[in-house]
Design a protein around this nucleic acid. Structure first.
Length: 218
DNA sequence: AAGAAACGCAACCGCCTTGCT
DNA sequence: TAGCAAGGCGGTTGCGTTTCT
């Protein structure tokens, strides 16, 4: 791993400590969890990415991949190659920023490397590339009005597992289609961010504005 | 069957932002 | 207003596992 792997005992100590004292006081965790020789940052990361309840593991579903690519196009900084993984992850129930980032770096970035301007590409015709799935799941475009759940469904494990994971081949085909198809994102939707370069639109203007766009109708 | 290469992902690092004094 | 501490984030690393030759 990228560092010293956490032992079961360390996980148990951290979980117990957070259940007792709550999330958020990371600077106190190393003090409160006797025997846990980890810094506040490591504790926070371990909790958020691994121990926290509702953390979803396993393959990404097509809806999740769809949303990652959409949001990556919208939230990615074209000039700096910077991305807002936490914002993307925030719209994928059970997924962490680290998960999304890893998935992008391992799977999608290589496959979309030839796409000139992803944010002007489109995410359409998913139905063509779908694996068999329960009716009305993948083809339903939710309203997502509360910005908390991409499928506008209760955040339950049941809903999550109904999403059908894509194989690598299917992702390949889907990404290829994305590259070849002319953009469906209207330029005017982005012009407000482009005018005058980055100086006229701060990062927070971006964040505030970005969710005014109905992602599911793009 | 064995070694090499590629992949996946947990963990670390450094920087930035925020809140408090 | 400045300085400090803590939270949070994105980029990177490196080891275990899987696939390929």
């Amino acid at each position: 791993m990228g560092g010293v792997a956490w032992s079961e005992e360390e996980d148990r100590l951290l979980k117990k400590c957070i259940e007792r004292y709550g999330e958020g006081k990371w600077h106190r965790i190393p003090v409160l969890a006797v025997g846990l020789n980890r810094c506040r940052k490591s504790c926070r990361l371990r909790w958020l990415n691994y121990l926290r309840p509702n953390v979803k593991r396993g393959s990404f579903a097509e809806e999740e991949i769809n949303l990652i690519i959409k949001l990556h196009g919208l939230l990615g900084n074209r000039q700096l190659d910077e991305f807002r993984w936490s914002l993307i992850a925030g719209r994928l129930p059970g997924r962490t920023a680290n998960d999304v980032k890893n998935y992008w770096n391992c799977h999608l970035s290589k496959k979309l490397v030839h796409a000139p301007r992803i944010e002007h590409q489109t995410v359409t015709n998913m139905e063509k590339f779908m694996t068999p799935h329960p009716p009305n799941i993948a083809t339903t475009k939710p309203t997502d009005s509360d910005h908390t759940s991409p499928d506008n469904q209760p955040k339950t494990e049941e809903n999550a597992i109904m999403w059908t994971p894509l194989t690598d081949t299917e992702v390949d085909r889907w990404c290829q289609d994305l590259v070849e198809e002319p953009g469906r994102f209207a330029d005017h939707q982005f012009s407000q961010f482009d005018e005058g370069g980055s100086s006229s639109c701060s990062k927070w203007d971006w964040d505030d504005s970005i969710f005014d766009i109905d992602l599911w109708t793009l």
